[in-house]
Design a protein around this nucleic acid. Structure first.
Length: 269
DNA sequence: ACCCAGGAAATTC
DNA sequence: GAATTTCATGGG
């Protein structure tokens, strides 16, 4: 168990805003989930974050980075708020959002599953994937299966998770990652256009899934994924602006806007 | 029986 | 090449 002071961080805003799919809210507002093969429970009380299921060493090596706790999101929010009044409103609506440092393979696989799908069902498919092919961690929790594990499967093997037409996409992604044909780690520093093109060599990965992988899996904070919600939001709330106009922290802006738009569907008749 | 879902591939024009 | 159709599944 570890307790640390935090600011600009809210559990529900960060863990249930569509960037990660494996965190569940418990009674009382704590969250339980699995990342990098470790299960933890988080609670936040008066600016103090408590993580149950870890220790100081693991916190420093993993969770501080996973939750991006050493970055000054207050400063990012201030900078973004000056760009556009509606962006200021969106950032003020959920000021506790942080962009997670997820495992790149998990992010890639999750956003392949996300295509033409809705968030509740995305979560169900991913949970079935983990339960069937991940390692059991106790308490009904499972790790996300490695690319090597999935690479050895056939579409028939994946039938029980009911991913539909995405099954063969999942397998192609796993094979390219497991064989090193696509080197995810090299995409942390590659020029963003090259990184996107490399990901799009995978069947089932287009611009949107590639950008989500770069932002949520490789922490490329300038990536600005455009899904159906964001396209609507750009047309209605930010006419004339492009993703590039949001700058080096465009990905953070994107997440503020995505969450704000999803919580205010009445803005989009 | 519709329609849609954090899209992308396959087909058609 | 750009526009349209199809893809598998579940929920409303």
């Amino acid at each position: 168990m570890v307790t640390v002071p935090v600011s600009d961080f809210a559990l529900a805003e960060t863990l249930d805003c569509g960037q990660a799919f494996r965190w569940r809210e418990n009674d009382g507002g704590s969250f339980t989930g699995v990342a990098f093969g470790k299960a933890i429970t988080l609670s936040l009380d008066g600016g103090k974050l408590t993580i149950d299921g870890t220790d100081e060493d693991e916190y420093s090596a993993l969770w501080e980075s996973y939750f991006d706790l050493s970055r000054d999101y207050g400063a990012i929010r201030t900078a973004l708020s000056g760009l556009h009044p509606t962006l200021r409103d969106a950032a003020a609506y959920a000021p506790g959002i942080r962009i997670l440092n997820q495992d790149p393979w998990e992010a890639l696989c999750s956003f392949v599953i996300s295509q033409n799908n809705n968030i509740p069902r995305i979560k169900l498919i991913i949970e079935r994937l983990c339960e069937a092919f991940g390692d059991e961690l106790g308490d009904g929790l499972y790790s996300f299966p490695s690319s090597g594990t999935i690479a050895a499967l056939s579409p028939d093997d994946l039938a029980p998770i009911r991913a539909g037409f995405r099954a063969r996409y999942i397998i192609d992604a796993a094979q390219k990652v497991a064989l090193g044909d696509v080197n995810l780690e090299s995409l942390r520093t590659a020029p963003i256009a090259d990184a996107r093109a490399e990901l799009m060599r995978i069947t089932g990965v287009g611009v949107k899934v590639a950008d989500c992988t770069l932002l949520y899996g490789l922490h490329r904070l300038d990536c600005f994924p455009l899904d159906v919600w964001m396209k609507r939001a750009m047309t209605v709330l930010f006419p004339g602006l492009t993703p590039e106009d949001f700058g080096e922290y465009g990905g953070v802006a994107q997440q503020y806007i995505f969450h704000y738009s999803r919580m205010h569907p009445e803005l989009f008749p």
